[in-house]
Computed example of a mutant assay.
Amino acid sequence: MSDRTAHGAIDDVLRAALKIDWTDAGAAYRISGGIFDALEGGGDLLATRIREVIARRGAGGDCESYEQMDKLVLWQSEDRSLRLRLHVFHPGFFDRPHNHRWSFVSRILTGGYLHSLYGSEETVAEQARAGHAPLSRFVRQETPGTQYFLEHSLVHSLSADRVSVSLLLRGPSVKDDYFTWSAAAGRLVQSRGAAQENTADRAAKTMPDARFDQVLDVLVREGIV
């Protein structure tokens, strides 16, 4: 499949995302699941799109890298409010309890990670004001094929002890900022969305050219491309 054909086919598959009511968890889960099924069952559609994004070095500058995690933007709506991303977690990855500015649905493709839920942002914020660290209320090992919907106000964290790859379809932003628990500071730290970041902050997490090739090597080994 040519890159141009793959791009058009991805647009066709993701057209269903434009109809998702992100306040309806069941509907978002079901429609996103159909999208993921179409991508995974579409021959080399997903692999071709990934290779295109990597070859063009992300083009739009939306792909991001962190010490133990990479994010490839595979598709976004015309108004950029909806995005399909491929997440690559490296062994030893963990993040701190945090909420999101948007709700999303994720499906694990390879590997897996430990997924912890801490409750609503209101509950966690109240605990933090009282000087208490978030306590996990639900812990589950996400494995290949599992899928879940997470509402934006829920606080969660992930940890991976092996290479893990997932697809994530995110809905539109419903607030300007989000928070992360800082154990060192003993408080919640507020962060703004990408549109509110300064140039230095944005550049610090934009995926460097060399990292695209490293991500491709990982995805080849994982059998994704």
Rank of each mutant, 00 (worst) to 15 (best):
E64C: 11
Q196F: 15
Y113N: 04
S32F: 00
G223R: 08
S81F: 02
V88C: 14
G26T: 12
A55M: 06
L82N: 01
F94H: 11
P172K: 03
A47P: 06
P208S: 05
L219A: 10
S116V: 05
F93R: 03
A125W: 05
G112P: 02
P144S: 14
S164I: 04
V88P: 02
G42I: 09
E78R: 08
L216K: 05
R96S: 11
E78V: 04
L109W: 01
D70T: 04
V13C: 03
A130Y: 02
K71N: 13
F104A: 01
E40Y: 08
L39V: 06
I50E: 05
A130Q: 11
S136V: 10
K71L: 15
L167P: 01
S159P: 05
F104E: 00
A203N: 14
E126R: 11
R202Y: 15
L18T: 09
L72S: 00
F94T: 09
Q196N: 14
R83A: 02
H7K: 13
D12W: 09
A6G: 10
T123Q: 13
D37M: 11
G60L: 10
Q214C: 10
D21N: 15
D70S: 13
F138Y: 12
D176P: 04
F36Q: 01
V105Y: 00
R192Y: 15
I35Y: 02
L109A: 09
D209R: 11
E122F: 10
K71R: 14
I108N: 03
A27T: 10
L84N: 00
R30P: 05
G193M: 05
H87E: 04
R211P: 03
L45D: 04
A59N: 06
L135E: 14
S32K: 02
L216P: 04
T143D: 08
S166P: 03
S32A: 09
A59H: 10
S164H: 03
R101Y: 04
R202C: 13
R4C: 09
V225D: 06
M1D: 07
A160R: 00
N99K: 02
D21Q: 05
A6E: 04
W102N: 07
A59F: 13
L14N: 00
I50Q: 06
S120E: 07
L46T: 05
A185E: 15
T143L: 15
Q76P: 01
